[in-house]
Amino acid sequence: MNFETVKDSIVNNILAPAEAGRFRTVGFQRQSINADEVEDNLRLVQIYFSRGDFSKRAGRNTGPVQHDVTYRVELIVSKAAGGDLATLDNPSSTPSQLATALVGFSESSALADASLDELAGIIYQILMDGLNYDLGVTKYTVSNRWIDNIQKNEPTSRGSLLVLTGSMDLSCRMVEEITGDVGAEVPGVYDTELDIDGDDVEKTGVTIDNT
């Protein structure tokens, strides 16, 4: 269905080419992630189909239906504390130099916060770029592309690194075709509600061909 095609396009045609060593992209959810895997510019963008809404239309067994899609974009970063490690490791450093180095160290929570904000900004601009209006698929397949919100979660201490996550919802509208499933053959369906004069057999109707 189109929602799958569009998701793959977002991953392969839009986000992956724009990584430039700043982040990584996957098109699914990982069950658990080691903080080391997403440290610094290995920060991860997970994008996956989250929800779809279909307007109810009576009597349609085939043909196009409107699909309001939401893709969840999850952002995961981790950071160590950062500063003048060389001075701390130097056995010749004086107490004054060591104190200066310690004062200058940035907390991992501050660095992770800044990293997530930066990543959220990068991904927002990529997905909302006018050049990406069609999300990398055939023109007019997708409409009403919009990022509804950005959310930042509580920091989690994953050992010696601090992990911070956030998310954004990317919504859009597309059309899906009801084609049925090519599976086991079943007898044709007859719509017996039709009342035709002189039709004693009463097997006149619509046959859905399941091939």
Partner: peptide, 26 residues
């Protein structure tokens, strides 16, 4: 690095202190 991201934990009642360490990056 021991930094304010995660404070040391007490143990003052029986005389120890627990430090949660963060990786240090240059």
């Amino acid at each position: 690095i021991l930094d304010p991201t995660k404070s040391p934990e007490g143990g003052r009642s029986i005389g120890f202190i627990r430090l949660y360490l963060k990786k240090a990056a240059q």
